[in-house]
Design a protein around this nucleic acid. Structure first.
Lengths: 152, 152
DNA sequence: GCTGAAACGATTTGGAG
DNA sequence: CTCCAAATCGTTTCAGC
């Protein structure tokens, strides 16, 4: 993971469909050299894959919310994950420190659909209490830059 | 945006580097037909682009947190956005309903770096109070499926 | 280990029917 | 939309640093 790898990753984050030759022109390598590095980055798990960035509005997922979820008793992260995975509206979920056990990021078509998803979320077996916060607007969303610092 | 477009989007979300011929095989179209549809989806903004999915751990961004931010007085979303954009650790930010004005998603190298970022966040001019929640583990992260429902 | 050059099949891309 | 053709690209193989 040298500085060339970082520039390759940056380039792919900016446009995952750019060609190896194009990337090579930017980082100063030939296309095969770039491909070898990308393959290695995929192998090491630094690059997990390539995806399309979709406008949620355009797909009819215009409403989102963050929900703090408190579970009953002692529940493992695996159990929490398993309980949330079946809900299609869950786009992200994290275990967290503090009063709540998990933060769940929900996306729905509209407020009505969001209410429906929240009802189903609250219907999950082990869930004790939920506190939901509706998103009014997305201010920014971006990927972290490669190698921000070298540790503590 | 018919059912073929939806399947094309799904395919590109799953792998943004798959070829048009490959997508065409799945959706039952020729490669040029797929390319025209992808170009149109990009034009309409349904597809915003293509990006690499990076492992934050591998890049040295292993620690994240959600921060509820309360601003002083009446602040516009644009001002909030402008105040957060300079902070490299901010990966996402939303205006929200409820007690807080915004939710900020932070990524840092470690707890120390997170503390540093939080300090700089609290140093932002118009910010009144912050409540931070540290992420212990990421349970799941996924893209919303195309066309979940047809609206209200 | 790393690289670049060459070669060949596959893909992209624009135009015609 | 499909078909076709020219340009470009992906991928492997090779030899050299």
């Amino acid at each position: 993971m040298d500085s060339i790898d970082q520039r390759i990753v940056s380039q792919l984050v900016a446009d995952a469909r750019s060609s190896y030759a194009e990337i090579g022109k930017v980082v100063g390598l030939s296309a095969p050299a770039v491909k070898r590095r990308v393959d290695r980055l995929l192998d090491r798990g630094v690059l997990r894959g390539f995806t399309a960035v979709v406008d949620p509005e355009a797909l009819g997922w215009g409403t989102e919310a963050f929900v703090e979820v408190r579970y009953r008793g002692n529940v493992s992260p695996g159990q929490i994950r398993a309980s949330l995975e079946p809900l299609a509206e869950v786009v992200a979920a994290y275990t967290v420190s503090g009063a709540a056990d998990a933060i769940v990021h929900l996306r729905a078509a509209d407020i009505h659909h969001l209410e429906d998803a929240l009802e189903r979320l609250r219907g999950v077996d082990m869930i004790d209490r939920t506190v939901s916060t509706v998103v009014l607007s997305t201010l920014l969303e971006r990927s972290p830059a490669p190698e921000p610092r070298n540790g503590p």
